[in-house]
Structure formats: C-alpha cells, structure tokens
C-alpha cells in the first residue's frame, strides 16, 4: 500500500511538471511580445524593456522555465499588474465563493444522481428506468450556462425568489451569500448529475445480480434493506470515484456559471484575465485549478485502494 501511494505521488509530480510546462508554454506562444501586450498601445519602449527585465523575459527559455518552477515551489504565482496584487492573493480572495458554489453543485448532482440511479437500477428495463436514463442523457446535453440563464429568467427576474446576480454586499451573512449561489449551483449541478446517475445505475446493476443479494432476498429481508444496505454499500466505490471526478470537472465548470450570474469568483477572475490578457493571472489560475483536478483524482484513486480490500498493488 505504502509503495503504491509513493508511486502514485511520483506519477502525480511528473504530471504536474508537464502541466507546469504546458502552462508556461501557453503564455509564451502569444504572438508578439508579452510585455508589450500586457502594457497596451500607450507603453513606451522603456516601460516595455523594464517589464521584460522584471518578468525575466530576456533570459533563455530554459532558464525562464527553471525560474518559473522555483517560483511555483515557493507558492509564488507572480504578480498581476492589472489587479496590482500578487496572483495568489487574488485567487485566495475569490476562493470562498467558488468553493461554496462547487460544493453546493456537487451536493445537488449527488442528490439527483444517486437516488435516481438506484431507482433506475432496481426498476431496470421498466418505464421508470427508461425515463431516468433518457433524462440523464438530456441533462448531459444542456449547456450549464443556458440552464443558468433560464433559471435566472423565470425564478429570479419573473418570480422574485432568488437574487438575479452577484454575491450580495460585502457584509452579507453566510445565509445571504449561499442564497445567491442556489441558482448557479443548480445550473452547474444538473448537467453533472447525469454521469453520477449513469454510474450509480451501472454499479448497482452489477451488484444486484450477485449471489449475496439473492441470499439476502431469500432470507426474506425487505427490499429497502436489500437495496440500501447490502447492494448500495458494495456499489459505493465506483460511485465515489465518479463523484470525485465530477467534483473536479465542476471546479472548471464554475468558470462558466460564475460568468452567467456575475459572481466574483475564481472563474470570473480567469475570464476577465483572458479578456485583458493578464497572463500571470491566467497562468496562476490554470496551475491551481488543474493542480486541484490532479489532486482530487489522486485522492479518489487512493481512497479506492484504501476502501476496497480486494485491490492490492
């Protein structure tokens, strides 16, 4: 087990190194001089030269990359000229909103996906099952931003149940803030519930055919106990895996949802950084979000190995 953990961590480091390289390269393939692009048309040649020196752009690429890695290791993500503050700080200020949004969306996706998936598996082949599988396919085909806009139009604009946009005033209570996040979380959660539903269904189907489930039924246990206690427990591992994966996907999906509802989160920061070509912010956000993505995937794999005694590496 320990050997497996160490090996997986090593693999993760290798992937992160390549991720860092990709992030590094993306900001360097920009047509033209990044310093000139960042300063805009009004910049004097002296300004550009000064910024080039400050960003280390005059060094050879390999040296720049090593410097960049050194920065990352010390958790220094660079400095945003537009925001006039370190990138790490800008990300941290907006992390709360995106974390809440993602967690709520995960909650919604799980609350839809797991129960419907279980019902669907138990009613396999019947109308309920077919409707559930069809709805899952439909949910996976709707752009989250469009769900967001539709919800906003009918539940926030036409009916005043939810705030239209934003995160409330700075002194808003936690409850008020979460209220602002309900519609965005639903918009983000619905499309992502589809994968959870389908995995739950498949995983339950596999387990429901097993001998011990038949034994439990033969003992005369009620359906509820057989399904929830005997079957679900054993079907849980793949379901947990896919919940982990969807969580990682939703962190990125939050970028789009935050834009719909003008929420000042990490996603909003990324989009405005792209629009004004604020490369330090783009790089920092890319690195942090994909880092989280890799970490969550690793955690899921390790959890998998820890929970299932049959898995030995």
């Amino acid at each position: 087990m320990l050997v497996y953990v160490v090996r997986r961590m090593g693999g993760m480091l290798a992937v992160m190194l390549i991720v860092a390289a990709v992030v590094f390269v993306i900001a360097r393939v920009v047509p033209g001089d990044p310093a000139a692009v960042m300063l805009g048309a009004a910049a004097t040649p002296e300004d550009i030269a000064a910024l080039r020196a400050r960003l280390g752009l005059d060094e050879p690429l390999a040296v720049q990359f090593v410097l960049y890695l050194k920065q990352i290791v010390t958790l220094d993500l660079g400095h945003s000229i537009f925001l006039d503050r370190p990138v790490a700080q800008a990300l941290w200020e907006r992390a709360e909103l995106t974390t809440f949004l993602t967690l709520m969306a995960v909650g919604i996706a799980v609350l839809i996906g797991v129960p419907v998936g279980i019902v669907s598996a138990v009613a396999r082949g019947r109308a309920v099952d077919q409707v559930a599988v069809g709805l899952a396919m439909l949910a996976a085909s709707i752009p989250s931003f469009w769900i967001g806009l539709t919800l906003m139009k009918y539940l926030a604009v036409d009916l005043p149940w939810f705030p239209v946009s934003g995160y409330g005033p700075p002194d808003a209570t936690l409850g008020e803030r979460l209220h602002h996040l309900v519609l965005p979380a639903v918009a983000l959660g619905i499309p992502n519930s589809a994968l959870i539903l389908r995995f739950t269904r498949t995983s339950m189907l596999e387990v429901l055919g097993d001998d011990y489930v038949r034994t439990a039924r033969a003992k005369g246990l009620p359906q509820r106990v057989v399904v929830l206690k005997h079957a679900l427990r054993n079907a849980m591992i793949p379901i947990l895996t896919v919940i982990g994966l969807t969580t990682a996907v939703m962190i990125a999906g939050a970028i789009v949802t935050e834009t719909v509802f003008s929420l000042p989160g990490v996603g909003n920061l990324v989009v405005s950084a792209v629009l004004r070509r604020d490369y330090p912010v783009i790089q920092g956000a890319l690195l942090v979000v994909s880092g989280l993505y890799v970490l969550i995937n690793l955690a899921v794999d390790l959890l998998y190995a820890a929970v299932d005694p049959r898995i030995r590496y």
Binding site: V15, A21, A252, V256, V289, S290, Y293, V294
Partner: peptide, 10 residues
C-alpha cells in the same frame, strides 16, 4: 496524461 489533467473547458 498532462493534457487530460486539465478540465476540457479550462
């Protein structure tokens, strides 16, 4: 692996 370590949209 590295390309897949990024979510699609990001």
């Amino acid at each position: 692996d590295a390309l897949m370590a990024f979510p699609d949209i990001l």
